[in-house]
């Protein structure tokens, strides 16, 4: 490690009402539907710290699969004090338009991840899949499914999250940064509520709905 550099461990985590999110567990959404989230993957682009010490790049592009637990990305950055984290939800437009055949298996943009939309010549940004039940007291698990996939450049959204306290990166030390997605808030914002029993499919051909989901996803984020 460079003498003036420190390590940042970026944890990208998902929660449900403050508890660690686990795929396929039963939850109730804000409309009191039973909901089972069976798959959650998302792309983040251009993740970095910013603040008095300038900007520090953490990650150009990453695919996070919450079915496999939290994602951790470790980067060496210049020591200093940072006050915020910026990121893009989705695949940055120039990468989104790139040729998927150039990426080897293991790369976040490899087609072997099953995230590429051939028909749209771009990637799915967020893949939010599962089952729902309009009966809050139901007990069955064989249920109608929802499949919410956002994509296309219109849905690429950047956000800056202010840190609750200054992020100090000391030379030779490791600093933990937690970017949290509150999955329980994936279906509502302060001004919008999505009824998963009627709006349960989004695959890129209904942009207004995809943008509403995107707004929910972005607003669910916090920095800890």
């Amino acid at each position: 490690m460079d003498g003036m550099a420190g390590q940042v461990r970026l944890h990208v985590v998902a929660t449900w009402e403050g508890q660690p999110f686990v795929v396929s567990q039963e939850h109730h959404d804000i409309l009191n539907h039973r909901i089972f989230v069976d798959g959650l993957k998302l792309y983040l682009s251009d993740v970095g710290l910013q603040g008095p010490s300038g900007n520090a790049d953490l990650l150009e592009i990453g695919l996070f699969n919450f079915g496999n637990g939290a994602g951790i990305h470790v980067t060496e950055v210049a020591s200093g004090t940072y006050s915020a984290l910026h990121f893009g939800l989705g695949v940055r437009p120039d990468l989104n338009m790139s040729d998927p055949s150039q990426y080897v298996a293991g790369h976040p943009l490899s087609v072997s991840n099953g995230t590429y939309w051939t028909w749209a010549s771009g990637y799915r940004f967020v893949m939010f899949d599962g089952r729902y039940d309009t009966d809050p007291n139901g007990t069955g698990t064989v249920l109608p499914t929802f499949s919410i996939h956002t994509g296309k450049n219109d849905c690429y959204t950047t956000r800056v999250l202010q840190a609750p306290a200054p992020i100090h990166v000391e030379p030779g030390d490791t600093t933990e940064v937690y970017l949290e997605f509150a999955v329980d808030r994936f279906l509502y914002t302060a001004t919008d509520t999505i009824d998963i029993s009627t709006e349960n499919q989004s695959h890129g051909n209904n942009l207004p709905l995809a943008l509403r989901f995107t707004d929910c996803f972005v607003q669910s984020t916090s920095l800890n």
Binding site: V111, W117, T118, W119, N200
Partner: peptide
């Protein structure tokens, strides 16, 4: 719901990069 009267094959059998599977 965004239906297009199609066959919905592409989710799993993606033509991307010539492989016809989503892996």
């Amino acid at each position: 719901l965004g239906g297009q009267s199609g066959a919905d094959c592409f989710h799993c059998h993606s033509q991307a990069a010539g492989l016809f599977t989503n892996g």
